[in-house]
């Protein structure tokens, strides 16, 4: 398997009036070609910032990123445009991410026109293929986004992202705004496209059952930091970090016979502005002790299973 994206010690800080907001703090991972890395965490944990930094919608504060072996940490002009052809993003809200005054065909045509170098007839042909690929009926060619439901709008987002045949797509909560029956249609489309085109996804979501369904590996974030990363099954079968355990136990399952032991966390996420050194989860953690105040090391407890918790041996 070949590695497509490698991220090393990525940091993204925002300056605020009250100090530095550590949105992404020292996150490292690799994604192999044709695989999906799911990034989960609660609102404000930095998962969307992570996706946007990788796609260069935000500039990183520190750390390195490699795409197909090439350093992409700093990109400008032509290099950035070339990278954007390879790496695309789909946004959460299909209601605000599309220009309301453009027709479906215009929206899909836009990236092709911006790239340039294609004949008009070739562009038209491509628009039609793309609509077919994502399951948009031909009669919607001249429709406006407001005439369509969320699922169809999200399909337009996919068509736009796929237009330039990228290798890598950041999916930022692509199904969170959709109803379950539509959500399932879109998730299946994502998987079909991945199989067909060998796409690589970074799938950002807060929905754990969705992430399990779609990901090969899962990275759990808490307040900007990676707390655990493991292959999908391993993470669900053997969660090691106290936060992951609480998070998994908090999912209400549609099963009336299964009674899960729920770990109900006390308190809420603390502020990511000027955080204290040490484990950021410690304040809500039932196992917290003195040593949690020190900066945490990431430990590989099993091949591919990384955990950032100093008390892991005592807990598990």
């Amino acid at each position: 398997m070949t590695e497509l994206l490698r991220v090393e010690g990525l940091k993204k800080y925002f300056n605020t009036r009250r100090g530095k907001l550590h949105a992404v703090d020292d996150v490292s991972f690799t994604i192999e070609k044709g695989k999906t890395l799911g990034v989960v965490g609660e609102s404000g944990c930095g998962k969307s910032t992570l996706g946007r930094t990788i796609i260069h919608l935000l500039e990183s504060t520190d750390g390195k990123m490699f795409f197909n072996g090439k350093d992409i940490t700093y990109l400008k002009g032509k290099e950035l445009r070339e990278y954007r052809e390879e790496a695309q993003i789909i946004f959460q809200d299909p209601y605000s991410s599309l220009d309301p005054r453009m027709r479906v065909s215009d929206l899909i045509r836009e990236p092709l026109k911006l790239k340039g170098g294609m004949k008009r007839s070739a562009i038209e042909e491509r628009v039609e293929t793309l609509m077919e690929t994502v399951g948009l009926a031909k009669r919607l060619y001249d429709a406006f986004p407001h005439e369509l439901d969320g699922g169809r709008r999200q399909r337009i987002g996919f068509a736009r992202a796929l237009a330039l045949e990228p290798q890598f797509i950041v999916c930022d909560e692509p199904v969170s705004a959709l109803d379950v029956s539509i959500q399932a249609q879109i998730l299946n489309l994502l998987l079909d496209l991945q199989e067909e085109k060998q796409l690589t996804y970074l799938f950002v979501t807060h929905d754990l059952s969705v992430v399990k369904y779609i990901s090969d590996d899962i990275l759990v974030m808490y307040l900007g930091q990676m707390v655990e990363k493991a292959p999908s099954r391993e993470l669900f079968d053997n969660p090691c970090h106290p936060y992951t355990k609480a998070l998994l136990s908090a999912i209400p399952e549609p099963d009336i016979h299964k009674k899960t032991e729920r770990i109900v966390l006390k308190g809420e996420i603390t502020s990511p502005i000027n955080p204290e050194p040490g484990c950021r989860f410690a304040r809500r953690c039932i196992y917290a002790s003195e040593q949690c105040r020190n900066p945490q090391e990431i430990e590989e407890i099993q091949p591919g299973h990384f955990v950032s918790c100093c008390r892991i041996k005592e807990i598990n």
Partner: peptide
Amino acid sequence: SIPRLNTEDRRLHPI
């Protein structure tokens, strides 16, 4: 339509 945590299905069955 809902992805289950306890099954290994690779495809959902949407409406």
